[in-house]
């Protein structure tokens, strides 16, 4: 350890980030579509109604969306612990992801997609990763069709009309590469992609259309963001679980006062009405078991908010 404290020439300890303009605009939210998702979907579809709102779709058509929703619900079903994929809005999450509204993911914007392609039907090994020439939005487009074709041939109907036992049987067949009508992407590869996307939709920040009412986070007792310049320093050494009501990164954005672009006012409105009844206070959000209640300032929100 140095004998004397050196002179401070760069101070990263007390920087005033709030109110700075133009700094974080590029890393805030995922753009207009997220606002669309919140504004239209979350307001128009009450909790518990798991029908798909056609007007809210960007990439998928209504039949594809219903199929995605039914499949997603088998991956992550509703049960006594809480909502399943349908109620959590996973179909809207996947729809927007496929549309490329988050880092261009659905379009494979950051993937290396140069030929020649040697896919798994042609000798690529699983260990070499995705080798199909299809980007996610294309893979979904085709695979959903192949799944319906397989459902019709093997079970005599559309996936959404099958019993849950049959639906599970079909998903297991995908996982085991049983269908022989897939091309470019193997059934198991698509299954892996789909399962991953469902879990993303269950537990993502609600700004992306999934994890509605932050109910996915509540099940895992996950608090979301600690807040912009948030801290658990005083809590990290403590025994006992500390339950903190969840917080979306949108609250962080608003707390910093950073403009999010032309859709910012829309975003603010929709977030207010959708999930964040607890506002944007900077006080502690937690309640410590066995301590005086007045030590926990701010809201003491329980699981039932929103």
């Amino acid at each position: 350890m140095p004998e004397e404290q050196p002179e401070t020439r760069f101070d990263f300890t007390r920087r005033s980030f709030l109110g700075r303009s133009g700094l974080a605009g590029g890393v805030v939210l995922s753009g207009h579509a997220a606002d669309v998702a919140r504004g239209e979907v979350q307001q128009d579809t009450p909790n518990g109604d798991t029908g798909v709102d056609e007007d809210a779709l960007v990439q998928l058509d209504i039949d594809q969306a219903r199929l995605v929703q039914a499949m997603a619900e088998r991956i992550y079903p509703s049960d006594e612990l809480g909502p399943g994929a349908a109620e959590l809005g996973v179909v809207y999450f996947i729809d927007r992801q496929l549309a490329g509204l988050s880092n261009g993911w659905g379009e494979g914007a950051n993937w290396y997609m140069e030929p020649p392609f040697v896919n798994q039907f042609e000798g690529a090994t699983l260990n070499q990763g995705w080798q199909s020439n299809l980007v996610p939005q294309e893979a979904y487009e085709f695979a959903l069709g192949w799944i319906e074709e397989y459902a019709s041939n093997e079970f005599g109907g559309s996936f959404i009309d099958l019993s849950t036992e049959q639906q599970d049987e079909l998903l297991t067949a995908l996982e085991n590469d049983d269908p022989d009508n897939f091309r470019s992407v193997k059934p198991s590869e698509f299954f892996t992609l789909f399962r991953t996307n469902v879990l993303e939709g269950v537990y993502c920040d609600p700004t992306y259309g999934g994890n509605r009412n932050m109910a996915g986070w509540r099940m895992k007792r996950f608090p979301g963001s600690p807040g912009a310049l948030g801290s658990y320093r005083e809590l990290i050494g403590r025994e006992g679980f500390i339950r903190i009501p969840p917080r979306s990164v949108e609250d962080d954005v608003e707390s910093t006062g950073i403009e999010t672009g032309s859709s910012s006012s829309n975003s603010a409105n929709s977030s207010e009405s959708a999930t964040h009844s607890h506002g944007h206070s900077h006080g502690p959000r937690y309640e410590l078991e066995g301590e005086q209640k007045d030590e926990a300032q701010g809201d003491s929100e329980e699981d039932t908010d929103a």
């Binding site: 980030f17 700075r20 890393v27 290396y112 993502c204 920040d205 963001s225 910093t256």
Partner: peptide, 27 residues
């Protein structure tokens, strides 16, 4: 650091790799 204020977002940074190399340019 001022760019990281609103970064508590698992999907965007941890899973869509906002801070990582863009493979479309080379891998």
């Amino acid at each position: 650091p001022e760019d990281y204020l609103t970064m508590h977002n698992e999907l965007r940074y941890a899973l869509r790799y906002e801070m990582m190399q863009d493979l479309s340019k080379g891998t």
